[in-house]
Design a protein around this nucleic acid. Structure first.
Lengths: 351, 351
DNA sequence: ATCACTTGTGGGAGCGCTCCCACAGCACCT
DNA sequence: AGGTGCTGTGGGAGCGCTCCCACAAGTGAT
């Protein structure tokens, strides 16, 4: 560690000062041009830009960070092991949205995994050093200490989803309640009589809301909710299999299943197949996320689409606003800083 | 852009100077302790460490970067669109190896995609600003300008694979020739008579070497190589399908296929199934990479395992050595800076 | 003519480190 | 005694920026 790499100041990189000399102006003026300040005359701006081009000047990020006390970087923190990250299409969609929106700016995106204690330790250190201007927090569980750490360090942050109905951080969520409601309404509309649900992890607020939506839709249709038809999965394929097995035991006559994620639906499908139940003839199946899995399943899976990419974009917008604002977070309301985007049912052959 | 975030110097973060005052020593001494210099007496070191702990001191990275002209960050550059990154298990394995090895150090890893012109433009800017101490380059094609850009900017870099037999950059490759040779030898040993191969993109040196290994194995067994049995794919499933279709037309009597990647083997399998060829009874199939696809295929796919995670670790080791060394790259030989790791055939039911 | 702004500009001060020179103190040789 | 090393230490200089104060020059109202 700390093997001081030999210096590398090889006569090369021009500095602000050199650009200023070349353009025949002062340091301050060059800085203003570089940073797009409007308080520069057109002629001066042109001269500076020419000098920048001639010298191939590129600002020194470290110097800027030191002087301005900002890093021009934000972190996307994934509190999951890397395997989850690659397995869940959710993350790649999110990353695409975030990346696209950030491409408009000079900001750099860092991807940080915090899946185990060691990584979390490192992350805490990293945040304490204020190496990023803001943080995007995806896939947070109710009891995660990370959000509070961020508030305490006064680091601007935006969370995907919410930890509870009274989320204190700026957030971007999708309307899980309405999405689940629509899915179950759809199943009812197709004349399904016994509708079960495979829930996600209930320490994830969104998963809870999907169960709430499921219940509300049944009640609105005058059906009684049978709690034995609500079985938790854990968002994995294996969890979906287990839950489906359990459901078939509890209620062999069920004719529809609403799964809290496509991956769990895929697990459920396997079990249904093994037991000789046809989809959708015997049992209708609906998933959540509208991921690639849903489109490629046999039969193609009806699913609720979350606008994940759009959520990513929205998170960036919110975060950049947070960073620009920078008043003590406590002194502000959450008005307009908590978004809920609509979900949409995508009907396919499985229901 | 350039919306100057308001300052945030809130009385909080302690500086080196404050730690020095508290410990009753000079700035230099604290710096030495922080950086693990041996030239500090035990008593002083203890005093400084106590002060650091009491004040909760965390070094300011920007100041350090400015003064020492290093960033303590390296970039993993993926010259592919993000979709490829998530689709190819290669990348996630690589990332795991790299991440694990880097966890031992203070270095920060940045993941940068350069899949289109715009992203490449941005990357070039990024590198010109010397925002990283070194670069890991994965999945590079023969004509990619990135490696040369890195040499020109004198940024330490390590490449995965090689662009050609005369690669000039430090590199970590796997022995594609031997892997392919072993695969074909295995097929011959099982009594297969007509062995075809689906090659990867031939602008990837490793793909070429696999074809070379295929040829060499046949020749060593006294077989003549029929060039009509060598069909290029493009590393995609669809490419595998096309190639397999072509092969069956050219040579309906073939009884074995060596595919240059598992993904292409999956495509080939589909076509074989459609045409009623049983695997392995009628046609034996061997893939490359030993990815999850291979293990989950029906029947499980014999494949050549590359130690990708290990390659990632090795790349980090090489890169850190490059960064520590830092003499003009041209003045050094490549001795010991180009690794070739062994591949291993994993036999399963498909052959 | 004077005052009051506004606009554009130069450059000092300072951000928090690392590097390195200088030097004190102590050992061990001639 | 006088060298000749070490080891440990303090602190000046400087990294390349941004921020901000000062001020010149222009504009318009009084």
């Amino acid at each position: 560690m700390a093997a001081h790499g030999a210096r590398n100041r090889g006569g090369g990189r021009p500095t602000l000062e050199e650009v200023a000399a070349r353009a025949g102006v002062g340091r301050g003026t060059v800085s203003r041009v570089i940073n797009g300040s409007p308080r520069v005359s057109d002629a001066t701006r042109a001269a500076v830009e020419a000098a920048v081009a001639e010298l191939g000047y590129v600002p020194n990020t470290a110097a800027r960070a030191l002087a301005a006390n900002r890093t021009d970087a934000i972190a996307l923190v994934v509190p999951e092991p890397e395997t989850r990250f690659f397995a869940e299409p959710y993350f790649s969609d999110m990353l695409r949205g975030v990346g696209a929106q950030l491409a408009e700016t000079e900001m750099q995106l860092l991807l940080i995994f915090a899946g185990n204690d060691r990584e979390r330790q490192r992350l805490a250190q990293y945040l304490a050093a204020h190496r990023v201007d803001g943080v995007l927090l995806v896939s947070v569980h109710a009891d995660d200490p990370l959000p509070d750490l961020l508030s305490q360090l006064e680091i601007p942050a935006v969370i995907s989803g919410r930890r509870s109905a009274r989320e204190t951080l700026p957030s971007v969520d999708s309307d899980n309640f309405a999405g689940a409601y629509a899915a179950v309404e759809h199943l009812l509309g197709r004349g399904r009589r016994v509708i079960a649900t495979i829930a996600g992890r209930l320490d994830v607020y969104g998963a809870q809301r999907r169960v709430d939506g499921y219940r509300a839709a049944l009640e609105a249709a005058g059906r009684e909710v049978d709690e034995r038809l609500v079985v938790p999965g854990d968002f994995t394929e294996e969890g979906g299999r287990r839950a489906m097995t359990e459901l078939l035991e509890r209620s062999p006559e069920l004719d529809a299943v609403f799964a809290g994620s496509d991956v769990m639906a895929a697990g459920a499908r396997q079990v249904l197949r093994e037991r000789g139940r046809r989809i959708p003839e015997d049992v209708a199946l609906v998933g959540y996320d509208d991921s690639a899995i849903a489109r490629h399943m046999d039969p193609p899976l009806t699913s609720v689409r979350q606008p994940i990419e759009e959520m990513g974009r929205a998170m960036i917008d919110l975060l950049l606003a947070e960073i620009a604002d920078r008043r003590p977070a406590a002194s502000r309301t959450l008005d307009g800083r908590q978004l809920v985007l609509p979900n949409e049912l995508v009907e396919r052959a499985s229901s």
